[in-house]
Design a protein around this nucleic acid. Structure first.
Lengths: 263, 263
DNA sequence: CGGTATTTTGAGTATCGTCAAGGCCAGTGG
DNA sequence: CCACTGGCCTTGACGATACTCAAAATACCG
């Protein structure tokens, strides 16, 4: 199920690598140009490995499109997902040793890869870039803490509700979930039930039951097994018990919806 | 239960603030001296607030002694622990906005506080310091991922086992748990059952049962409700199902005991 | 030594994990 | 074009685990 990219594979391209990554937009022009110089676009198909467990990756990456998942491979072969990477996220442990998890494409993805050496050299010269990286990591840390709060939920429906909310507050900002007809929000779950179960610390069957339980409660609607509509954000928020971790207002603003907009 | 430090409280002192924090030892002498200049030692008693939820703290902190806990305060007043800070850990969101959680002393603690302004100014001038901070945050990120793996465990005994292992692999290195007579390891749990329950996503009663369950299985011994002896590291590791997240060998090396040595 | 907070224990109920079977969809080959 | 096959999701029934409520025991503090 995991297709390792052969040497040189991964669909390397080379034009306008930074295009569309707005986090780099604020950098001074010369820095941005230099970054372009060491950047390559790589494409991965679903299931392809981006970084092997234990490797010190040869590049620092930034997701342009699609979703990657970080997972630890346990001794007995099982895999444990420790997080998702979505457009805008960076990975690769600047200045540091190997990753202790693998990264692979959860869906077809495109990343922007900066060769490690030159990138680190640039970091030393450009305080703006270094700060950008630092803030990026801080952000990731916050997200990890949010995950912790979600995982600390005692009921599966609560963890699932929290997951869905994070999925559209955080990931949605980039993945553009479009507001549906009546102000509902479409989200696309990027991983299988089994992976989701692993991520939320439960079993696929329980995920399935939780999904349908939320649907029966009218909080979500199931379009396909991988596409839901969030109908009752406040209900989901209450279910997830996370008044703190998920910023509902930001989400509603983002949707720019006069709620209940007719088609 | 939370004693807010009055203005100027927190037991500010001023001598040899960096003493004993070995992470700063590698910095160039002039940088270290300058850091000393902006550093102040603050002391907190158990339960005292170090940073209020939503505050942009006036200082960047580094724990010298004791344990702090990070917690989110929910709308309904409940508090949710999102992590612990132990000696060596830094906190305070350099270059960034307010923390979205509170920090308070879980046990009597001493921190080293750097005024934010001067510290950030130093960061811009000293690449060494900036890198130190960056690595520190990366480290914290790893720890957050380990927490995620622990929390994703389906059984309470598993989460507890993972917690205990992390408590001595990571925190123990500094908190010097001394190896007991037969190679067992003493650990001191720094928080109440209720807090631990919250942290592990369960209830105090279940924590209690899990503790005694591990004790009955011979994996730990209960000295007091807050002090255990870890008798069977491999058993705990298996129970926690974390071949990846917890580095047993490092722990045993640290303890300097031959693994499973027949007495 | 008494009072309070915390931990522990117990019994009953809800939730979840497990095992097994059925359904849906996509890809394959006749 | 259709039947077949394999993977995944879903559903059902039963046992294990964890939560709830209540009460008892223990530790902590003055």
């Amino acid at each position: 199920m995991v297709y390792h990219a052969e040497a040189g594979a991964g669909g390397v391209r080379h034009n306008c690598a930074l295009g569309g990554l707005r986090q780099f937009a604020e950098l001074p022009e010369p820095v941005r140009r230099e970054l372009e110089g060491i950047a390559r676009v790589r494409s991965y198909r679903e299931g392809q490995a981006v970084v092997i467990d234990g490797d010190k990756p040869a590049f620092i990456g930034c997701v342009r499109q699609g979703i990657l998942r970080m997972q630890k491979t346990l001794a007995d072969g099982r895999e444990h997902i420790v997080g998702l990477l979505v457009p805008g996220d960076m990975f690769g442990r600047v200045f540091d040793g190997p990753l202790n998890f693998a990264i692979e494409a959860a869906a077809d993805a495109e990343i922007c890869a900066f060769s490690r050496g030159p990138f680190e050299a640039m970091l030393e010269r450009s305080p703006e870039l270094e700060r950008l990286v630092l803030l990026n990591i801080l952000n990731e840390l916050d997200r990890a803490r949010d995950w912790m709060m979600i995982l600390a939920n005692r009921k599966v429906t609560g963890r699932l509700a929290g997951f869905l909310l994070v999925l559209c507050t955080r990931f949605g900002a980039i993945d553009q979930p479009h507001a549906g007809a009546n102000g509902a929000i479409d989200v696309k779950v990027p991983i299988s039930r089994a992976d989701l179960a692993h991520l939320l610390g439960t079993r696929p069957e329980s995920i399935s039951r939780a999904v349908h339980s939320l649907a029966d409660a009218g909080m979500i609607a199931i379009r396909t097994p991988y596409e839901f509509e969030l109908l009752d954000l406040e209900g989901l928020l209450a279910e997830s018990g996370e008044e703190g971790a998920v910023d509902l207002e930001a989400l509603e603003q983002m949707m720019q919806k006069p709620r209940r907009d007719p088609s």
